[in-house]
């Protein structure tokens, strides 16, 4: 099986003299989730539109699985599901019909088509509205259908442009879960987002764009720690049970730990110094305590700091 890949080569998009995207070169490869961050107007949507053949670059190339999107869009997107901005759907088609159309276009065999559509609909929790006309859907409901359309036929690559935009808080949480679920399969996801917590939770790597230029592309760990050399670093630990005060005290006494913040009974934010060695030691310590540690990762506030610093520097 080929390794999924997305590649931008000197990708540039100019509107008259204004360039929304300047010489973006980026290669994503393998099964992982890459977050695409940047302020409003940074050029994220522009880049994703070029990758999905919605617009043509002024210069440069966009390749999906090594196939040039501008040269052969049909082949390039054959294993790619995409959701760009908030598409409208033909208003007189029902949710089910709209998704059947997509399944048919994408070549889901007719015997499996109905199941594929039902599976996508239940993933986005739209079963109740399956026969509703798309013209009558609310914006959030429509976005769920759009996400379902991107999921149909189990694409190996997914390009998502703020998938949770327009959704209510529960909807956002659900989309986060859906995307997290998508990650488990061997799939490459490239997702733009303004929700740093979402990106921290889901993504393995982050690309940061501003003024059409790539500021950084690296793993979440390296990005956040590069910034905090010598500084305190923050991590977030989640537990399956409520933390006892004894356990808290024990964790707090570990070498390197500077502070603890119990944001929820089962979620702890630790700040510490000493880089990776300290992080390794602290993780081992907490795991050894047997207090139900289920996750340990860089906290989103670390990403936020990195993000703000990078974006500010580029002004």
């Amino acid at each position: 099986m080929v390794n999924p890949s997305i590649e931008a080569v000197d990708l540039t998009k100019c509107y008259n003299s204004f360039c929304a995207l300047s010489d973006l070169s980026l290669r994503l490869e393998g099964a992982k989730c890459v977050g695409f961050l940047g302020p409003n107007g940074a050029g994220k949507t522009t880049a994703l539109k070029i990758l999905t053949g919605l617009i043509r670059p002024t210069k440069g190339k966009a390749l999906i699985n090594g196939i040039d999107v501008q040269e052969d869009k049909k082949a390039a997107l054959s294993t790619c599901g995409a959701l760009i901005e908030t598409p409208e759907i033909y208003p007189a088609l029902s949710v089910k019909e709209a998704l059947m159309m997509v399944a048919e276009i994408r070549g889901v065999p007719s015997a499996a088509r109905k199941d594929a559509v039902m599976k996508a609909i239940s993933e986005v929790k739209m079963e109740e509205w399956i026969d509703m006309k798309c013209g009558k859907l609310s914006k959030g409901m429509r976005q769920r259908v759009n996400l379902a359309a991107a999921l149909i036929s189990d694409p190996m690559i997914m390009l998502l442009d703020e998938p949770s935009s327009g959704l209510d808080p529960r909807g956002m949480a659900e989309v986060r879960e859906i995307v997290k679920g998508l990650k488990k399969k061997d799939r490459l996801i490239f997702m733009s987002s303004h929700l740093l917590s979402e990106v921290t939770e889901i993504c393995d790597e982050v690309a940061i764009l501003d003024h059409g230029r790539l500021l950084a592309y690296d793993t979440l760990e390296r990005l956040t720690s590069a910034l905090s050399v010598g500084n305190a670093r923050e991590c977030e630990a989640s537990f399956s049970r409520d933390l006892s005060s004894d356990a808290l005290k024990e964790i707090g006494s570990t070498e390197g730990v500077l502070g603890l913040k119990l944001v929820e009974p089962r979620r702890l934010i630790l700040s510490f110094e000493g880089g990776n060695e300290a992080q390794e030691r602290i993780l081992a310590k907490i795991a050894g305590l047997g207090v139900g540690l289920i996750a340990f990762k860089s906290s989103s506030s670390a990403l936020e700091e990195t993000y703000l610093r990078l974006v500010k520097d580029s002004r």
């Binding site: 049909k74 760009i84 598409p87 409208e88 997509v102 276009i105 759009n146 359309a149």
Partner: peptide, 14 residues
């Protein structure tokens, strides 16, 4: 109406 965004991102020629 942006219905194109629904259809065009699929593997199908314009």
């Amino acid at each position: 109406n942006k219905t194109g965004y629904f259809l065009v991102v699929n593997p199908v020629k314009r």
